[in-house]
Design a binder for these strands. Structure first.
Lengths: 188, 188
DNA sequence: GGTTAATAGTGATAAATATCACAGTTTTTA
DNA sequence: TAAAAACTGTGATATTTATCACTATTAACC
């Protein structure tokens, strides 16, 4: 819970009482490597604050191929936001790449927090905007750069992540075939 | 202003007083076709609610090539969110493709609205999440589909927009060369 | 500890897409 | 309304990337 408070207080300041209420809405949970936090078609009752570990948000297409929307690690919020906010079936799955500890928050808890402590709505808004901005950067990378540049940018931006994921997964994230990525990483 | 109220009330309900305060924070402005609402490197003091017309959010790379992050028309909110929220220089430009009427809202106005009427923070959060979800769809389109499929999806999803933009711009939005798009649109 | 599964590299080839060059058309603007 | 600019289509060719096939290596699991 300490991690959560530090995380929130990068954006807004909370009194002890406020944080005590906020934290009472979260439930910790542990997942193992290779477990799914949720799968496509399932309900998504929670948004997850990732305390430790590593997950990926994946979309599975009609041919069964996995496409990686994002990796999420320490200090990130993740869920299928469309499904969570509208209480619908997931279109994506959230898959653990390492043993992962999360703090989960239900939609009711989320609304209780916003009602009880309006500052938190500001915090969530800041996070949502951050997510939007990050997505725009990724879109730009597809518009501007070829596979090699996208790979180089990823190395620059997430040097620590590169150590923790396979080339196969990185290729999928970057939108190139495994083989092409292998050839790119050689020529440097 | 009527348009704005209808737009907001798709998400939350406002009393007359509340809406009167909200609308007092907005200023209408008219732009002509080909004008820039803001350019890269400029300050971005406002977020823009587009009442009518058509704009595109563009990033200009080191070689001077324009890349289109999004088209925005009636009922959309647009700005360089990173620059607006942190009051920094724009990394993108907002360019009018048609004569465009906007309602602009400053960061102060935005914060006044949130302070005076907390429900509105919920509204803005819903919009931010909507933007995030839309971006994720676009990312998926790059991961899953080739140029032809992205083109077909665009036709399906935005049939009315297709009539209003040149193929050159559409190609740029889809991340393919003008020539390739021309050949794709022939083979169908 | 031995078997199975996942990961990684690489050659050969096919497919998708970009680039260059040019011509015809439409739209803008002075 | 004439000239300039922007848009569009298309051929020829080069480049990028995917796919298939195979091998080697490493990690996971009973």
């Amino acid at each position: 819970m300490d991690v959560l408070r530090k995380h929130i207080e990068k954006v807004i300041v909370l009194t002890d009482e406020e944080f005590s209420f906020v934290s009472s809405c979260f439930t910790p949970q542990h997942f193992q490597r290779k477990e799914y936090i949720f799968r496509p078609q399932e309900r998504v009752p929670f948004v997850y604050f990732i305390v430790s570990g590593l997950t990926m948000l994946v979309y599975i297409d009609d041919d069964g191929n996995e496409h990686i929307l994002s990796f999420a690690m320490d200090d990130w919020w993740e869920t299928d936001f469309g499904a969570f906010l509208h209480q619908r079936q997931a279109t994506m799955g959230l898959h653990c790449l390492e043993d992962t500890v999360v703090l989960k928050l239900s939609l009711d808890g989320y609304q209780a927090i916003c009602a009880h402590c309006p500052k938190m709505e500001h915090f969530f808004l800041a996070k949502a905007n951050g997510g939007h901005i990050a997505s725009q950067h990724r879109i730009l990378s597809f518009l501007m750069a070829d596979a090699k540049m996208r790979y180089d940018w990823f190395l620059e931006r997430y040097p620590s992540l590169v150590q923790r994921i396979s080339k196969t997964l990185l290729a999928s994230y970057l939108g190139v075939s495994r083989e092409t990525l292998s050839r790119l990483s050689r020529q440097r």
